[in-house]
Simulated scan of single mutants.
Amino acid sequence: METEADEKRLNAVERTGLAFLQRSCQRDDSQVRPWRDEDRARIRRLQARAIVLCGLAGAVSAALIGAADLWLRDALDAGREPSLLSPGRDAAYWAWFGGIALLASLLELLAMYWLLLRSVAGIADAAGLSFSQADAEDALTTGLSRAALDIPNPRRSLHGIDPYVRASRLKLLVYTVLYRIKVGATSFIVRILARRVLARGGLRMLLPFAAVPVFAGWNALIAWWVIREARVRAAGPLAVSEAVAALERARLDDDGKRLALDAVAELVVAAEDAHPNYDLLLARLRKALGLETRIPEWSAVRDQLAHADASTQHAVLGLMVTTTALRGRGCRRQRRLLEDAHAACGQTFDSDAMRTARQRIAEGRCDAGG
């Protein structure tokens, strides 16, 4: 694979995840091919298993913490609900409760990591990918490791393009903060709501267990998110290969090639995301077209697209749809660019075509370029 080396950017957790994947998938070389029906069936089983078991891990963790709450109140003869506003009076309770909750949460996290890493390794194997040592520095394999660990993509340049060059620093900071507190904030809010409902219903004994469905549901959602992202990344090599092959079949002239690469660069910047599939796409396009990437002015790209011949327009628009779909999830700025590009060609952007492209990529099917 021709993506940029990424190994030096990995922290200890990411390196551990990558080592786990390498041990789990021993194929010598990647085999980029359409997924077979049995591959998709295997991936669906892995997805369902991960969602159920991760949800169960959350429920068990919350139940243990709730049981510890009841046990400590009885053992320490608290008789009332300990207050955070007067920790000195309830110091023994909070010390024991905090330690038990921390241990249960740590075990829950380790269980989820193990389950998700195993599931992602199975998906990669079904997709024909390799985690051999020769590919250890490849951004796609490290990207799958990050997906399994639910770690955001690093903020880095991709082949001379900075996806975050136009992103607001405040927006990036807010996104990072929200990403870090998402579990805690959600659990806290639901616990408060449950407390009010149960207290009014005279079911105070259930208060310590109010977080059980929250933790179970949230873990299941995280597992679904991780597996969905892993599927998109595992299918990336096939989708990119077909998109580049379709562009080569279009036999674009020099201006058309530059237009295609500039359109992709603009979509990558609009996404504000150093997604590993974008790394792979840019690498393949640079090699196939013999051009270097740059960040263009969209108005110039739009004008050139508007004056291009019909075959060039068709090829570039198809590549733009695939580029957007390669990220696996929507982005308003990318959608606006697609709508503007289609309008420049006298066409109307088809949302159904985008959904079909995303679905086709996530299922490892052929003709991802449309």
Rank of each mutant, 00 (worst) to 15 (best):
D28H: 11
A344P: 05
Q359K: 14
R49K: 11
V165G: 09
H159D: 10
P34Y: 04
A124K: 07
P208G: 10
H159V: 07
L198R: 10
R360I: 03
E266T: 06
T3C: 03
A147H: 02
D29K: 15
A300F: 12
R365Y: 02
A306C: 09
A211Y: 03
A67T: 14
R233S: 01
R33M: 03
E38I: 12
L129N: 01
T324A: 13
E272V: 02
G128E: 04
G128V: 08
T141G: 01
G369P: 00
S130K: 08
A223Y: 12
G202T: 10
I123Y: 01
G318V: 04
L282A: 03
A134T: 05
A185T: 08
A263F: 04
R286M: 12
A265N: 12
E38G: 08
A194L: 11
K182R: 15
L72F: 02
V268T: 12
A315P: 03
D254F: 14
A310M: 05
E266D: 08
W35M: 15
D69N: 13
R286N: 04
L53W: 06
A315W: 02
D309N: 14
L103C: 14
L129Q: 03
D350E: 10
D125V: 02
E108H: 06
G88T: 00
A48K: 13
I192C: 13
D309I: 09
I222M: 10
A223L: 03
G143H: 04
I181L: 11
V240G: 02
D74E: 15
L140T: 14
R45Y: 09
L109F: 04
Y278S: 07
E297G: 01
R302V: 06
F131M: 14
G369E: 13
C25R: 09
A250F: 07
G290D: 05
L84R: 13
L305E: 06
D255V: 08
S24N: 03
I100F: 10
V183W: 12
L261K: 05
A68P: 00
D69G: 01
L178G: 11
R146V: 05
A67M: 13
C54P: 00
G66A: 04
H314P: 01
A270D: 13
I295D: 04
L338S: 11
R15K: 15
A75H: 11
G256K: 13
A353W: 02
G143S: 07
A263E: 05
A239E: 07
D29H: 14
F131E: 07
A271K: 11
T356S: 03
G79V: 11
R156P: 05
R27I: 06
